[in-house]
Design a protein around this nucleic acid. Sequence first.
DNA 1: TATTGTTATACTCTATAACTATA
DNA 2: TATAGTTATAGAGTATAACAATA
Lengths: 142, 142
Amino acid sequence: MAGDPSDVLTGRLGYLLKHTQLALTAAVARALEPFGLDGRELAVLAVLAAEYPLSQLAAAERLGVDRTTMVALVDVLEDKGFVERRRSPEDRRKNIVELTEAGRDTLEKAERARGEVEREFLAPLGKGGAVKLVAALRALVG
Amino acid sequence: MAGDPSDVLTGRLGYLLKHTQLALTAAVARALEPFGLDGRELAVLAVLAAEYPLSQLAAAERLGVDRTTMVALVDVLEDKGFVERRRSPEDRRKNIVELTEAGRDTLEKAERARGEVEREFLAPLGKGGAVKLVAALRALVG
DNA sequence: TATTGTTATACTCTATAACTATA
DNA sequence: TATAGTTATAGAGTATAACAATA
């Protein structure tokens, strides 16, 4: 009645999601290393590129992170030269976070690398299986 | 060229996996609250029930956690009365971690609650979709 | 010498509270 | 008064190093 030791864990959805995510995060981190970014920082750049202008708070909300977390994230990206803080003329309380030329360039290249890694990661599922997995995850959370 | 703001994140596999996992973890935690457990602790109980005897180190390896992490995990479960440490007679360096009666009882009930939550969580995918998602994740990591 | 469990310590990630400047 | 950004701080979660007991 105890269950098969070999799948007591792999039968758990939580375990599967966690370890799938860990494996992907590691693979993405390796692929992005040449660009001096991790996946989370790349997501910040992508959010900033997709919508303009975006204040720190607005960007944080899009990303689902706390505004204090966003401060550190922008600090890092600014140190790396990928973004710049600019005071909003309309509301001087706000920082508009702007991609630099290097930021845009790195975003484009790093996004391509991320796409490749994701495709490799999902390769075991076949083309159709990969598409279905993404669709399923979007249905659950997107 | 920047991409649609609405799916710059939901098009990222890492984001989808992370947020799916966060949502499930929260749902499982809520469901297990009456049992005084979280999903990770329940996984420990399940591993211990599936294979016996298991030392702390062996259990930690099954779970993929550090042995120092395992110490704290067993401490908590022991405080809650779900497991007991027993010195191995064959090798007195080892702690055999044993489920108590309360541990076995709680394991059974909590596993049922976890199963229900997972089914509800996956309900938007339909029966077939849910089975396929789990199969896909197992193919990627299991 | 090597292994198991333990403790102390540190590091990452994140959130809460309090401060500042602006509105 | 309320909001945006910042800082300080604290809480999880986890890993590394060192130690005690045992092999």
